[in-house]
Each structure stands twice: as C-alpha cells, then as structure tokens.
Amino acid sequence: MTLLAVLSHLNRADGSATYTHNGYAIIGAVNGPIEVQRRDEMPEEATVEVNIRLAVGIGSPKERHLESLVHNTLRSIILTRSIPRTLVQITLQVTSLPEEEAASGVDSACTLLPHLLHTALLALLSASIPLSTALTSVVIAVPASASSKAGTTMLSPTAKELLRAKPIRATHVFAFSGNRKLLLSQSMGVFAYDEWGEACEMAEDVCCRDEGGVGLGEDMEVKGGQGNLEEWLRSVVQKKVEMEQRWRVAT
C-alpha cells in the first residue's frame, strides 16, 4: 500500500496537497479565509465551498452529492465561528483513478470519498485554516459470497481487490475525528445492523490513534502493510513542519 502526500506545492493557492494512494491521485487546493460573496455571507460563521472536479468530463449530480458529503463533514471540523463572514474555498481535482475502478461495480462515490476527505484535510492544514480536530476516513467493503476466502470484510480495498471479490454486497465509508468521534457514515448496499457495527469498530481501529501502546500498530502492519491512519497523517504534517523549521533548528 502506497500512501503518498506532498504538501504546499502550488504557488497560487493558500494551501495545497497532492495525495496518491493505490492509483487514486487527487490535488487539493484551499483558498481562505477570503472575501465572500454577499449572497453566501453568514454573519457568524465562515462559508465553506467545496468543488470536486473529475479527471475526465464535467461534473454530474454524482459529484454534487460527493461535494455535499465532503462539505458537511469538513464543516464540522473547521472552526467556522472563529473566522466569520469569510469564505473557505476547497477545490479537489481528481487527476487519476485506477483502471479497474469502472469495472469493479462499486459506486465510485464510496471508494473515492475517503481519499477526497484526506486530501481536503491535508490542504486545509497546509492553508492553516483553524480546525477543531483532524479527521481520518476509511472504506470497508463486504463481498456477497460468504463461502469464498474473501468472504470476510475488506478493509480499504484496492480497485483490483474489489474487482476480484465481485459482487460486493455492501460498502461503508467511515470518518472519525481525532477524539474517536464518528463524523461520517455513508453506506450502500444490503447489510444488517450488527454487520454495520462490526465494520464501524474495524474502521475505528484503523482510523484512530491507539492510546494503549504499540500492540495494534504492529498488528496492522502485518495484516495490511499499513500503520495507523492518524499516525500516518501526523507523520506527513510533522515532516513538512520539520522541513520548514530547518533554519530554526540549525542555529
């Protein structure tokens, strides 16, 4: 699994991030706080605007739906009340999708959503927009055939894995805040409430930092080749800050 992120690489935007993961590549840019148009202005809060642009073709209702999901999730972590009557403009440009994406038969709204959220968060951090907490998100897929070896739930599957495990019965997307609070739960397909609960717990394990110790982190390394998402997020930002603070450390 290759999670890669580059921060603040665009000159014009206030904050930017490029995020690459399993064939998904997204460029995120944030402008803010900037002047807001009169009709969107809110007296006690900042306006958040999210634009999602596809690699190929112009936006459709599907993108509008994704935009509203990302918008509502981010609004809950941006401290909109501390920058009232301004605009925070978030643009997410998808630059490439995995080849198997279209054939996997899973709605791309679900598979793309965690990546969009991560990109947006990194861009927001890069633009120094006041946030109440960080956010991590993961997609979980449940294949229909329980008999096959892939009958178990799949954690953050790649497009190839999804194609192989076809047909998929249900997909869930969860987003958690830094203090282990559920921010977003988007599910599609057929599933029982118990299954949803299980998936939710599984996602929480991957998303949130384990306060107990090292045990879980190592365990995950063996299973998915991936540490904790929150830790990864922290390390990306930490590296960037260290890089920027070299002049201070050197003296």
């Binding site: 665009l10 014009r12 840019a29 402008n31 634009n51 112009i58 403009q89 440009q93």
Partner: peptide, 15 residues
C-alpha cells in the same frame, strides 16, 4: 478541447 478554470488556479475563477 475542454478548458474549464477552477478556483484552484486563482480564487477569481468561479465554477
């Protein structure tokens, strides 16, 4: 050829 500016390039561009 489709050219559509996004606010990524400059906040003055509106979708």
């Amino acid at each position: 050829i489709i050219t559509e500016f996004s606010p990524m390039a400059s906040p003055a561009f509106e979708v």
